[in-house]
Simulated scan of single mutants.
Amino acid sequence: MVLFGGTIHTLQNSLDYAATKNRVISDNVANVDTPNYKAKGVSFKNVLSNAMDSTVQAQKTHSKHISFNETDSSVLRVTSNQQTAYNHNGNNVDIDKEMADLAKNQIYYNSLVERMNGKFGSLQTVIRGGN
């Protein structure tokens, strides 16, 4: 039995994603001048497989591809792009991109917090009997 429905669980997962993304962006910004540092990113691990119909068969053609049938409970995955280098020292952090991503993630996080507050406000109203 789900006590509050799936909405709060979904909001919790989304907040976890936003917090992890913020940490990864902060790491990237902190290492903007570190030689050979490769920028990291965050992705939902099984979003596509959960959204797709289970009858679709996916073939894993590379060892770094995400498996569609893993049952790992971890939804988030931190990835690193090893293929590029924007700076002469092998670093691939683009500070403008990171700052834009940080602003976008902050707006996303704030909207999730507002939605969570609205959900708990509704529950509080119900508990108080509509007062």
Rank of each mutant, 00 (worst) to 15 (best):
Y109N: 11
Q82Y: 00
Q106L: 10
S54G: 13
S67W: 01
N91S: 08
E98P: 03
M52L: 15
A18D: 07
N28E: 10
D96K: 12
L112W: 05
D101M: 08
Q59K: 12
E70S: 15
S43H: 00
N31P: 04
S26A: 15
K64W: 00
M99T: 00
I95Y: 07
D101T: 04
V29S: 02
T34R: 03
L102I: 04
N91C: 07
V47N: 06
P35F: 02
T84C: 03
K45G: 09
G90F: 06
S54N: 14
Q12S: 09
N110E: 15
E70G: 14
S14Y: 04
L15E: 04
T10H: 09
F68W: 05
K21I: 05
S80D: 00
V56L: 08
S67F: 03
R77G: 07
L48N: 12
K21Q: 11
R77I: 15
N13H: 14
K60H: 05
F68M: 02
A30L: 06
D16K: 08
S43Q: 10
Y37F: 15
N36T: 14
L15R: 02
N69I: 02
I66G: 01
Y108S: 11
S73P: 02
V47F: 14
M99K: 11
N110W: 01
V24F: 02
L76M: 12
R77M: 13
A58Y: 12
T55V: 12
R77N: 13
L48V: 11
S49E: 13
Y108L: 11
P35I: 04
A19K: 09
R23L: 11
N13S: 05
A85T: 09
V113Q: 11
S73A: 07
H62L: 06
S14D: 07
N81S: 03
Q12R: 11
N81C: 00
K104D: 10
K60T: 09
D72F: 01
K97L: 09
